[in-house]
């Protein structure tokens, strides 16, 4: 894969039917590019959890995806409230999600740990009151 592929997606706020569309499109794209299935699954899971987070906590946001050479880099950014205590947020079971989110099958404090588990690299930039950017890299 010599070429660089760039895709941008909007992640709409409070739209639980649409949540996951961006991850779904990226999954399909990687499949068309012939990426190994286990790499696709890792990418899809990490991106999907980040996308859900942007919907739950960030009032929606954007996904910027770059595929170059042997890796994919995904930046999910939102203008939400930011993460107050990142160390705490990385712990399994810690969550600030309301009950309405728990009813969706999320919000049990597994999102960020799940992203970390499936990404090869994870960088989180967050500022209280300004928003959060989650950068996920997966090597093929």
């Amino acid at each position: 894969m010599g070429q660089v592929i760039i895709r941008d997606f909007d992640i709409p706020a409070d739209d639980f039917l649409a949540a996951g569309e961006a991850s779904s499109a990226v999954r399909k794209l990687l499949s068309q590019l012939g990426v190994a299935p286990d790499r696709i699954k890792r990418t899809a899971i990490a991106m999907y959890e980040a996308e859900i987070n942007a919907v739950i906590h960030g009032h929606g946001g954007k996904a910027h995806v770059e595929i170059r050479g042997d890796k994919i880099t995904i930046v999910i950014s939102d203008k939400g409230p930011g993460i107050e205590d990142l160390e705490l947020a990385m712990q399994e079971g810690y969550s600030t999600a309301p009950d309405s989110i728990r009813e969706m099958g999320f919000g049990a404090g597994m999102g960020l740990p799940n992203i970390k588990k499936h990404a090869d690299e994870l960088v989180i930039n967050t500022e209280k009151g300004k928003g959060t950017a989650v950068t996920i890299t997966v090597y093929f």
Binding site: F16, Y48, M104, G105, F106, A108, M110, P113, N114, K117
Partner: peptide
């Protein structure tokens, strides 16, 4: 819990759940 499905399940073809929503 969908996060658990993604955290722990590996190559399963079938999901049984009491949760009903698009996610």
């Amino acid at each position: 819990l969908m996060s658990d499905v993604m955290a722990f399940a590996k190559e399963n073809a079938l999901l049984l759940t009491g949760l009903v929503n698009p996610q």
